[in-house]
């Protein structure tokens, strides 16, 4: 299936980190355009991205493919988040702006670096038009990493992207998601949505577990929306690996 070729088969093994991912396909005949990836960029750092290409079908899948390959190449050249999104913006704008058929995506791109001495992980990311990343803290709180003003990638020749930084301690989890999650309908009309506040409340109840457990909880939440979920949804959870005792 084509969707499969647009997503990584598995996430890489990462010293000092744990990760889990899930992709919900809304409709088998209307190929969605959500995408994500996690991969090493140098000896110490890993890059990650997740996003949502506008539209559906084969044309959106072509944009998704171009987006994934561009971000991977950009990351290996320079993992700076704004620089990677700026390259993607140029590539998409150059490819699609003259066609009269605007094609664009939302994306969050970043890198993280585990510190073996402390077990903490430093995260730098940038967003282009993407909903804010969520951080679940070990103490049971949850917070968004706001990135207001980051623009959709590909609609203008040059676009502003907004950065955010955080440190994940053992027990913390960073959750990347596409808007299928927050835009799921929870009422009878089309504008009553699950929304940011409900997501934050949900996330606060999931702290101090593991990426696998968080992704399983989100998967169950997505299933609970039933017909209210009519969009593809991708989620990726990343956490510092639990500390193991050093041998004496």
């Amino acid at each position: 299936m084509l969707q499969r070729s647009l997503l990584p088969d598995t996430l890489p093994a990462m010293p000092g980190m744990e990760a889990a991912a899930y992709y919900h396909t809304a409709s088998p005949d209307r190929l969605g355009g959500d995408f994500y990836d996690v991969f090493p960029v140098d000896g110490a750092r890993f890059a990650f991205f997740l996003g949502d290409v506008c539209g559906k079908g084969p044309q959106a899948a072509a944009v998704t493919s171009l987006t994934r390959h561009t971000l991977r190449a950009a990351a290996l050249h320079d993992p700076d988040p704004v620089s990677a999104l700026t390259i993607l913006n140029r590539v998409l704008h150059a490819r699609y702006s003259a066609s009269g058929d605007p094609r664009y995506c939302t994306a969050v791109f970043g890198w993280f670096q585990p510190d073996p001495a402390t077990g903490e992980v430093t995260v730098h990311l940038a967003s282009g038009g993407h909903p804010p990343v969520l951080v679940l803290r070990a103490d049971g709180t949850a917070e968004f990493l706001p990135t207001p003003g980051g623009l959709l990638v590909g609609i203008l020749p040059s676009a502003p992207f907004v950065t955010a930084t955080t440190v994940l301690a053992p027990g913390d989890t960073m959750l990347l998601y596409t808007d299928g999650l927050t835009e799921a309908r929870t009422g009878t009309d089309r504008t009553t949505l699950f929304g940011d506040e409900a997501l934050l409340a949900f996330a606060a109840g999931q702290a101090d577990t593991s990426p696998r457990a968080v992704v399983e909880a989100v998967t169950a939440l997505l299933e609970s929306f039933g017909d209210g979920l009519d969009d593809d949804t991708a989620v990726v959870a990343l956490s510092p690996a639990p500390r193991t005792r050093h041998p004496r």
Partner: peptide, 9 residues
């Protein structure tokens, strides 16, 4: 529009 940054465009 705010999430996707278009409120500033």
């Amino acid at each position: 529009l705010r999430i996707v940054g278009l409120d500033r465009i």
